[in-house]
Design a protein around this nucleic acid. Structure first.
Lengths: 202, 202
DNA sequence: GCAGAATGTGAGCAATCCCTCAGCTTTCCA
DNA sequence: TGGAAAGCTGAGGGATTGCTCACATTCTGC
């Protein structure tokens, strides 16, 4: 019922290719035509695969979207873990920009896709695995902030994530491609939120 | 072609009631079941109106959504204008919380609806009237910021709007209903962004 | 080689979608 | 008061949707 995981795991290489083609086709339709134009028949067509093959690996249309969302979350977790490792020994002021840069990475790569997946996530009933990833991400940020003396690390982690995500989406829509400058402006806001004195960012 | 305005203007009172019922039904379905469940037949059913009546006033499904989006934008413009009037003679530090409070007002009233309408706006091709409203809103904020000595008022207006909107949506999703506290935290971030020293909020 | 598992195919079903239209009821106004 | 305008109805047309299933093809291990 609530099992948006692949219905059958691909064992051979061409099966993996089929799954990948389906996911990529879904991503491309999402980018070029939006969620309203995302139909299973069209996904199969763009992927160059028969509709039957699609349903051999994904039990429902939603499952394909869920898989993309899950992958995006997993990538974010990895990038954040890297950032945290890089921030070892650094103080709060130096850590924040690293976290922001990690969060912005996916928006920089395929901006429209990232935005549409986030929108889809709000409507989708996300599976247990994706929920677990979200929890891991949250816990990671909470821990980093707490270690650096932030007063209410839970609240702060939530607020900073909300701020960066929504802001990044809007920037993407407006065609702002200068991620570095965007990250710098976000850092200013985050510093203000955390009660850090303005100071020159460099 | 791109005329999502009512196809026929209601002249009698019961016609106005019909239009209102259709809009309210659309809002309710959006809140309770999401955009995927928003069908014209269902709208008519929930509104207690026949499907034929619906199409007498709205030429397409999208037009109903566009009307709701337009109304939301118009309300935001009004609230911002009030805030600006209230901020006459005040400095930047005192003005920012007023602008934030105005922006948050709709999210506080019907949070889920506000969020889903914003999501819909990103997919919809918005009509000329709504675009004009957006431009007015932007110009208003730019002017207020410029008058109070903000360096790059265009950029700042965009960034602050993006920050507040996305953040508010996320807070709504998480069930955070304490709008006052939320506004205060946002103000801290905005102050940091604008280069204002932390200082006590009151 | 070959049996069986894994993979791939696509016509088409049932359900649903958006929207039209011919005819009915209610309201307005001279 | 009566004709015209405005409003309302809902069956259903044509298109599309998500998805199934009976069957063909390809690969793997022995």
């Amino acid at each position: 019922m609530t099992a948006p995981t692949p219905r059958k795991s691909p064992r051979q290489q061409r099966a993996h290719a089929t799954c990948a083609a389906i996911l990529e086709a879904t991503a491309r339709i999402l980018e070029s035509a939006g969620p309203e134009a995302l139909t299973t028949n069209r996904i199969a067509e763009v992927a160059g695969v028969s509709i039957g093959s699609l349903y051999q690996y994904y039990p429902a249309k939603q499952a394909i979207l869920a898989e993309l969302v899950r992958a995006q979350r997993a990538a974010l977790l990895t990038d954040l873990q890297d950032a945290v490792q890089q921030a070892a020994g650094l103080d709060l002021r130096a850590t924040v920009p690293l976290l922001i840069a990690a969060s912005l990475k996916h928006h920089a790569h395929r901006p429209l896709l990232a935005q549409r997946l986030e929108a889809a996530e709000k409507t989708l009933a996300l599976d247990a695995e994706t929920a677990a990833l979200k929890a891991q991400i949250d816990a990671l940020v909470v821990k980093v902030l707490a270690q650096r003396g932030v007063a209410d690390p839970r609240q702060a982690a939530f607020d900073l994530a909300a701020m960066v995500t929504g802001w990044a989406d809007a920037a993407v829509m407006a065609g702002d491609s200068d991620t570095v400058a965007l990250a710098e402006r976000m850092t200013r806001a985050a510093n203000g939120y955390l009660g850090l004195a303005p100071g020159s960012v460099r």
